[in-house]
Write a protein that binds this DNA or RNA. Structure first.
Lengths: 332, 332
DNA sequence: TTGAAAGCGCTAACAC
DNA sequence: GTGTTAGCGCTTTCAA
């Protein structure tokens, strides 16, 4: 592969001039500049990013470490990050930590050793697993899940409030035994959903029925099956995310239960298929794309000014009530 | 950030010894090696990957350029790539070209200038848009969509055959006016589905009704609406992918049509929600994860031996017939 | 405006 | 077994 010296030789100038010409420095004779461009083109020259970044001590690549590529919530965040980063002249590489602290650590290593300009991460939740990242001084923004023991830029969702509103909605609809199936203990979003659920139940005389499972379909299906097959079956359920909702709906099918009528249902995350069900699934829609946009803005601001004080952006989620949380089937 | 010289100074050895010790070369005195490790730890030393890669003239990072992060088919491929690459000692960075030839080109530039060890790409379809990638000599594997005018490693699916089988299944079920809604002209997978659909229709006396739309929900919904609202409404439909199926099902809802009874339905891609519908959606399941695995194997083999002859792996897809393609509602 | 030369941090000959 | 040193390809002083 052609190097800058090859181009310089061919254009009959020094490597310095090639560098200046190709980087659009104004202090280059137009005549030389065009000779350089021609030579570069003929040789199919492509600057070596490694050498450039090594010399400049900076990169134009952001790393986005998300906890599950197969979860539409996170891919929507990725879209927001990508659009905003590209507009700011940065490229984004996506790393899938798969809710696995070990993979997360490995990708942090990659991001650091490749000297990414900044990192956006949805923390897997294991305390301290991101210490190397923070200690490195690399600009970081945490999304979706807060970092309890670290001061850093964050973009979060009012999910406790949203969980409370969703539960209150189920109460208003007249459901009596309302359960909550959320993510693993210690994962902040999962704990928030549980807390919001509790907030709504206080003083209503209803009993708390709280279950935990991983944020995926299989675990949720098992947990839901236990709940639905046990004594004192709940008549409504608040579900932690859309992957879990898939498991819950699978369990309901197995138990012959109809959404809305036999079991009121609200799930976090507005997946594209939720309106295809009969009845349609009520959801708490999180502004995933906006989370990505805001996180990138914070990150770019911090890259530009590493000394600025960390700030937290908290976005609202929106309850969309549909048929699955309404006792009269078929109502909106 | 600490450099190798800092570590060398602290351990009282040369940088060469630090490098050897940290890279596990056996020719280092154990005593010195442990002193080096201690010094590195104390300083929080992290090798500069840029410098290392520049010197070594190689990277352990693969780039995976997929056409849509929000499509479960591609994220499943990504999982397969990631698992296989990690087992082979490579990291994977994901780039989302978003079915956009321009973005695709930009990410190719990034992959080349960062000197990725290899690239796996699901081509956007614009002819020639990947020329720089191929011309660079970087190891490449194309997945899902073949490169008609290039000789390179590929991992494909027998989707023409699968489309034919799916259509034959609809014929067997007694549907008479079978239409096909597939992706844009020129996208190989879209053309294959159309061809397979035609293969099945030949000699059955049925008329071809072929529609094209982008591989996403909105376009598919519009196209399906036209089809379903027009004269001589089809009584069955073969759909190009799961995102399109979302659009089609939305259109059916708007027109008050029931799957299976009013409209026999088979869609490509076995998304997690397909079994939640009533009736369940019949699908052509593509081995997405395996595509990722095989593609990575081919890529690693080519990285190890750039001179080997290109080969193509073609995997089978599997028809899973469920209620949406059966006239008797509720049958499996 | 242009060129010569230093040097980013690391690895791999080569010499001892 | 260890140190010295050259050099990966680029950008950026510093002189001219």
């Amino acid at each position: 592969m052609a190097t800058i010296s090859d181009v310089a030789a061919r254009a009959g100038v020094s490597t310095a001039t090639v560098s200046r010409a190709l980087n659009g420095k104004s202090t280059v004779d137009p005549e030389l500049a065009s000779r350089v461009r021609a030579a570069a083109k003929e040789l199919g020259y492509r600057p070596n990013g490694l050498a450039r970044n090594l010399r400049r001590q900076e990169t134009a690549v952001l790393a986005l470490i998300i906890s599950d590529v197969e979860n539409p919530f996170f891919t929507a965040i990725a879209r927001g990050v990508e659009d905003t980063a590209q507009a700011g002249g940065f490229q984004v590489v996506l790393c899938n930590s798969d809710e696995n602290a070990d993979k997360e650590r490995r990708y942090v290593e990659v991001a650091l050793s490749e000297r990414a300009a900044g990192v956006i991460v949805s923390p897997s939740g294991l305390p301290g697993s991101l210490d190397p990242l923070f200690d490195s001084g690399t600009p970081v923004v945490a999304v979706d899940r807060r970092m309890p023991d670290r001061s850093c830029d964050m973009v979060l969702v009012h999910s406790r409030l949203a969980a409370r509103q969703a539960t209150e909605h189920l109460i208003e609809q007249g459901y009596q035994r309302i359960a909550c199936l959320t993510g693993p203990e210690g994962v902040p979003t999962a704990d928030d959903r549980a807390a919001g659920y509790r907030d709504a139940l206080v003083g209503t005389g209803r009993r708390e029925v709280l279950r935990r499972a991983e944020y995926r379909a299989p675990g949720a299906q098992v947990a839901a099956s236990e709940l639905l097959g046990g004594p004192e079956r709940p008549d409504a359920l608040l579900v932690g995310n859309s992957a879990m909702a898939v498991g819950v709906l699978g369990a309901m099918r197995a138990h012959g239960l109809r959404a809305g009528i036999d079991l009121g249902l609200v799930s976090f995350d507005d997946a594209p298929w939720t309106t295809l069900l009969e009845p349609q699934l009520s959801v708490v829609a999180q502004p995933a794309y906006q989370i990505g946009v805001q996180a990138t803005r914070l990150l770019l601001a911090r890259i530009a000014d590493p000394g600025r004080l960390p700030s937290t952006v908290t976005l609202d989620a929106r309850l969309i009530a549909r048929g699955s949380s309404s006792r009269s089937p078929g109502s909106p």
